[in-house]
Simulated scan of single mutants.
Amino acid sequence: MSYGVVVGIDGSAQSAAAAQWAAREALRRGLGLRMVHVAGTEADALERELGGGSAVPEPVAVIRDRIAAASPGLDVSCELRPGSPADDLAAVGRRAELLVLGSRGLGGFAGLLVGSVGLRTAARAGCPVVLVRAGADGQGGTDGPGGVPGDVVVGVEGDRPCDAVLAFAFRHAADTGAVLRAVESRDVSHGGPYTTEAPVCERDIRDSLAAAEQLRLQDALGRWREKYPEVRTEAELHPGSPAGALVAASRSASLLVLGRRTPKHTLGAPRLGAVTQSVLHHAHSPVAVVPHA
């Protein structure tokens, strides 16, 4: 049995924003919304003891009731689980289509946009994880200026972009009516000196290499354009830092989609790459981390 869309909530403003985002996505997908509060802190334990057992804390109940009232057609459930937040949320995510978290919950450090629970869960969950922060540039993770859907930005790498990552990005763009922007960073400035039979400007060669890379990226998207003809796509090749290009692209995005490679062996420790961690800490939009082989 699938849990549908799962959102982790702890009563913080970040988790409230995550719950709103998750509710919209559950409605779009025709799925139920399962709210999970993992009572892994001493404050939670004390509140359970004073409150008589299994009731969720009042701030969590407020978020639950607000979401249910705003989305009367949505099947909403709320569950209290004891344990470690990152471990339990990742475990629940194994049976979910999508796991949504606030980027930083109660007790997080103000200087970090993504807390340790969010990072650890995104590295371990078997389903896509979306991290949402409250008031991201005033967009709330949904629309851009004037109510127009923000772009769906997907980071791609290599000659064969990952199918799981592109599938997630194209589906979300199709569901929301957004433009999909495939962003890749690759340095085509090196490779000289160049030897030719006739004098050729190195700048012309670099421009030709960049044009060839742009064409390669367009070709890599061809199959997905055929599957989602309604989605307008743009392919962008950027020089320099991949993290910098993706963070810049997130300014006009409703969602930024990244991939996370899963370990081939069970002994391999799940982790996020340096680019993904940097983007998670600095992105201006919600970020989806999609696991893939």
Rank of each mutant, 00 (worst) to 15 (best):
G115D: 02
V114D: 00
G135T: 06
R34E: 11
A90W: 02
V92L: 11
M35A: 10
S12L: 07
A39T: 08
C78P: 00
P59F: 15
L74V: 13
G107A: 05
S54V: 14
E79Y: 02
D88G: 12
G126E: 11
G126R: 11
R48Q: 13
A123C: 05
G8L: 14
A22L: 08
C78E: 07
L46A: 14
V7P: 07
V129H: 01
P57F: 14
E25T: 07
A90Q: 01
L50P: 02
V56E: 01
W21T: 03
R66T: 14
V117F: 01
V62L: 12
P72A: 15
R66Y: 12
S12K: 06
L113F: 09
V56A: 04
G30N: 07
R124I: 06
L119R: 10
C78D: 04
A19E: 02
V130D: 04
A68D: 03
L131I: 05
F109N: 10
D10L: 11
G8H: 08
V38A: 02
G53T: 06
L89T: 02
G102L: 03
L112Y: 10
R64A: 07
R124T: 11
D88M: 13
R66C: 13
G93D: 01
V62M: 13
A55L: 15
S77G: 00
L98R: 00
G8A: 11
D88W: 14
L101E: 04
A123D: 03
V5D: 05
G93I: 09
P57T: 15
L112S: 03
C127E: 02
G111N: 03
L119S: 06
